[in-house]
Amino acid sequence: MDETGKELVLALYDYQEKSPREVTMKKGDILTLLNSTNKDWWKVEVNDRQGFVPAAYVKKL
């Protein structure tokens, strides 16, 4: 969790967005987890953008 109590995830792999609903991340990025109710796609925030990334590409910290 960060200082505001939000849950964080670590990008395990690079991911290039394939639609406007997704976000690009690089391996090693720390992202804010917004929603993990879907087992396949998690909603995150990175670089002031919100979108989805494959759940298998990130790990909760």
Results as ranks from 00 to 15, higher is better:
Met1Ser: 13
Met1Phe: 13
Asp2Leu: 15
Asp2Ile: 14
Asp2Ala: 15
Glu3Thr: 15
Glu3Lys: 10
Glu3Pro: 14
Thr4Tyr: 13
Thr4Pro: 14
Gly5Phe: 13
Gly5Lys: 14
Lys6Trp: 11
Leu8Val: 08
Leu8Cys: 10
Leu8Thr: 08
Leu10Tyr: 10
Leu10Ser: 05
Ala11Arg: 01
Ala11His: 00
Leu12Asn: 03
Tyr13His: 10
Asp14Ser: 08
Asp14Arg: 03
Tyr15Leu: 01
Tyr15Ser: 01
Tyr15Met: 01
Tyr15Ile: 01
Tyr15Gln: 01
Gln16His: 13
Glu17Ser: 15
Lys18Tyr: 05
Lys18Met: 12
Lys18Val: 08
Pro20Phe: 09
Pro20Ala: 11
Glu22Leu: 04
Glu22Asn: 05
Val23Gly: 02
Val23Ile: 15
Val23Ser: 02
Thr24Ala: 06
Thr24Gly: 08
Lys26Met: 09
Lys26Trp: 10
Gly28Ala: 03
Asp29Tyr: 05
Asp29Val: 04
Asp29Asn: 06
Ile30Ala: 03
Ile30Pro: 01
Ile30Lys: 05
Leu31Asn: 01
Leu31Pro: 01
Leu31Phe: 07
Thr32Ile: 15
Leu33Ile: 05
Leu33Asp: 02
Leu33His: 01
Leu33Trp: 01
Leu33Glu: 00
Leu34Gln: 03
Leu34Pro: 00
Asn35Val: 08
Ser36Leu: 05
Ser36Thr: 09
Thr37Glu: 14
Thr37Met: 09
Thr37Ser: 14
Asn38His: 12
Lys39Tyr: 08
Asp40Cys: 12
Trp41Ile: 03
Trp41Tyr: 07
Trp41Gln: 03
Trp41Pro: 00
Trp42Met: 03
Lys43Gln: 12
Lys43Tyr: 15
Lys43Trp: 14
Lys43Val: 15
Val44Pro: 00
Val44Ile: 07
Val46Trp: 08
Val46Glu: 04
Asn47Val: 11
Asn47Phe: 11
Asp48Met: 10
Asp48Pro: 05
Arg49Tyr: 05
Arg49Ala: 06
Gln50Leu: 07
Gln50Asp: 06
Gly51Ile: 05
Gly51Ser: 02
Phe52Tyr: 15
Phe52Arg: 03
Val53Gly: 00
Val53Tyr: 00
Val53Asn: 01
Pro54Met: 03
Ala55Trp: 02
Ala56Thr: 11
Tyr57Ala: 10
Tyr57Ile: 07
Val58Ile: 08
Val58Gly: 01
Lys59Ala: 12
Lys59Asn: 06
Lys59Glu: 13
Lys59Ser: 09
Lys59Trp: 10
Lys60Leu: 13
Leu61Gln: 06
Leu61Asn: 03
Leu61Lys: 04
